[in-house]
Nucleic acid binder design. Structure first.
Length: 294
DNA sequence: TAAGATAAGAGGGACAT
DNA sequence: ATGTCAGTCTTATCTTA
């Protein structure tokens, strides 16, 4: 099988790399990430490893800080004399205190842990989480967090990261996993867009279609046909200003009906998280624009 | 029982005041 | 900053096939 469009996306649901155009799973990224050396004992592994954990925006100090550990021996394993022990105790104490010293650091360390929890609940891949962390840092630097809820800002950053990376997650889905409500999260999200001058790519209905299709019983053929219809709808400019999710839902419903797949509006509405009425309206638009008579 | 029709209300963008 | 307006989507209810 060969996919020409190469319009690939890292599917966060399955962890696969798939083509957004045709749904082909491309699993050929066989890069070996293991070491090129062999080691037979733990000591050998320790001495041969040349790297530590990666630096990450998800850790408040990017994981690069030096930590004075609670071991009372020096680099050669010799015990530290009694008279110096107190000195090390004080050093360690200030090492810990200085790490999370400023309020922004405390805020960030709290936020990163909240982000971790939220992204985990939503099964979001690492790159989205990292992206959200970068946005949060920018917001914090511009003083946009103060006076707002950390949890809401974290949710807003995560949503922004999803939009930026074209990872299909709706605001409602994020709201369900966050203790803050949709109104607040969306307000903060809009504020982020404005203050940080973020430009988001427009969500395409055909990218969210597989998400709906995976929740209802639809054949691969019908999915492809629905995507075709969406392309046509876009060309006819009847998608502008419409929720991509409802466009996709309506296209899927239309295709099912044309192919004698007796799926109900209710089922699709549930899978797409839109109402039946909205599906009906979009369905009507599609039928009219495409001159279809079913 | 699913699908269609209709109406009222919420919330946000554009624009004016 | 606040108000208005058109347009979208939701919720609710009734009718039709």
């Amino acid at each position: 099988m060969e996919c020409r469009s190469r319009n690939i996306i890292n599917d966060p649901e399955s962890g696969e790399i798939v083509c957004r155009g045709c749904g082909l799973v491309i699993s050929e990224s066989n890069i070996s990430v293991g070491p090129e050396w062999r080691a037979f004992t733990q000591t050998e592994r320790d001495t041969r490893a040349r790297t530590g954990p990666p630096s990450s925006f998800l850790i408040y100090d990017k994981g690069l800080s030096t930590v004075i550990g609670p071991v009372y021996s020096d680099a050669y394993g010799r015990r530290i004399p009694q008279e110096n022990k107190l000195q090390f105790f004080r050093l360690r104490k200030w090492n810990i205190r200085s790490r999370v010293h400023y309020s922004t650091d405390r805020n960030l360390s709290q936020a990163m842990s909240d982000l971790d929890i939220l992204a985990g609940k939503l099964h979001l891949p690492f790159n989205v989480k990292e992206n959200a962390a970068v946005i949060y840092r920018k917001a914090l630097k511009k003083g946009l967090i103060r006076g707002r809820s950390i949890l809401s800002m974290v949710a807003a950053c995560l949503y922004a990261a999803c939009r930026e990376t074209q990872t299909p997650r709706t605001l409602v889905e994020i709201e369900r996993c966050s203790p803050r409500d949709k109104k607040e999260i969306s307000r903060d999200y809009r504020m982020l867009l404005k203050e940080l001058n973020l430009r988001m790519p427009v969500q395409k209905a055909k990218y969210v279609l597989p998400k709906i299709a995976s929740k209802v019983e639809v054949s691969e053929k019908i999915q492809r046909k629905a995507i075709e219809i969406l392309g046509e709808a876009e060309r006819l400019k009847i998608t502008v200003g419409k929720d991509p999710m409802s466009m996709a839902a309506a296209a899927l419903y239309l295709t099912c009906k044309m192919n004698k797949n007796s799926i109900t509006q209710k089922d699709i509405a549930e899978a797409a998280d839109v109402t039946e009425v909205t599906i009906r309206n979009r369905y009507k638009d599609l039928k009219k624009a495409l001159n279809l008579d079913i």
